[in-house]
Design a protein around this nucleic acid. Structure first.
Lengths: 205, 205
DNA sequence: AAACTATACGAACGGTCGTACTATTTACTC
DNA sequence: GAGTAAATAGTACGACCGTTCGTATAGTTT
């Protein structure tokens, strides 16, 4: 409740923190969360290394804050607009289409932040990896639940395995994201759209 | 032709080079090609940094050699056994199944070497990125051509878009690889197998 | 035996990394 | 105004980075 105290000192800190994280998510989407460097970040933003790290405590905490910031951007760009759609097949389509635009519009310069980061940490333990795994499960879980909702309103056949369908749909997304970056061509997004449309048609009642 | 000169000096060098690369591909599959460190590699192998780098010239050359070594391992594990199968749907299935085993058996400790490395370099230019993009195109191209062959022998419908099908099939593979690492569960490979089988059945004449 | 070549070594280079500790500046309270 | 708290800056540290250099060793050639 008493959040809007408007203490100028704290506001200044928040502003700096946001400044750092805005840059950090972009850098990390290209160079990875390991590629984040405190010195490099500070130089780019014309602030001191010590002043920067004082906001986060350690590099790992900075990385975790960067994951949270990226999640917020993702939620705003992809999830929230889709939740305007009524539950059902339309909402599933909105989530998938928003994702493709989030990727192809390069909301992060390196494509999907989470695809980049998840592959970076998939093979080794730690808090960062756990955070990334949680976001991934959250996203796939959202697709799965939205598919189940679409079944409940009769827009997806009841015998469809929602987990299976969510796996395949998200697989198309990730593949289009990577290949568009690797080939430097946006044509793969059409392959993904074709695959998504076909797979959803097959699931219609 | 005159390759088997058996010069003891060169044999010793080849042995060291192979030793380095065998370790390098494993390290890179977990920590990435950027995570390769000359000093770290040298320490693990009980050789000197300078002796190690003398074989490759620079870190980037070491990275490129690591990509080539990983490609050779991949070819041996996945491609060559499948080419024993006669051209057709069986060969397509063999390629896909071999890939799943290559991933789930952790032929590289960090899962698929190329998934890890491609995401690492997808967003930035350079020779390493180009090499990884080439391997990716080679792999997807192989799937596509094998599908076309299957069409020619009448085991896949002629109206199937081979590029589209290859996109979807490889998408399942990559997704299973990543999620198995992230979730620490092998169950996603079954999702991939189900998706692959279904998609191929749909393409049957 | 002498000349040559490939491999491997140890030491040092300039840089950058993350982090800790110590001012200094800025903003608010009383 | 003095006092306090938060944000920022400055400095230094040890560790590691990739790379270069000169040198020693092992193997081949003449």
């Amino acid at each position: 409740m008493s959040e809007q105290v408007a203490d100028g000192r704290i506001r200044r800190g928040d502003r700096t923190r946001r400044l750092v994280l805005r840059r950090a998510v972009d850098v990390a989407s290209v160079d990875g969360l390991e590629g984040l460097s405190i010195g490099g970040l500070a130089t780019e933003l014309s602030i001191s290394k010590s002043g920067l790290i004082a906001h986060f405590g350690s590099k790992e905490q900075l990385q975790l804050a960067t994951v949270r910031a990226a999640r917020a951007i993702f939620a705003t760009a992809v999830v929230e607009p889709a939740l305007q759609e009524p539950a059902g097949l339309g909402r599933v389509r909105a989530l998938l289409e928003n994702w493709l635009e989030y990727s192809s519009d390069r909301r992060f310069p390196g494509g999907c932040f989470f695809a980049r980061a998840a592959h970076e940490y998939a093979g080794r333990p730690g808090a960062v990896r756990d955070a990334l795994a949680a976001v991934d499960e959250e996203w796939v879980g959202l697709i799965t639940r939205t598919v189940v909702e679409a079944q409940q309103v009769g827009e997806v056949r009841a015998d469809v395995d929602a987990d299976q369908l969510a796996f395949e749909l998200t697989a198309y997304l990730d593949s289009a994201n990577l290949r568009s970056l690797l080939l430097g061509s946006a044509g793969v997004y059409d392959l993904a759209r074709t695959a998504l449309a076909r797979r959803l048609e097959e699931s219609a009642p």
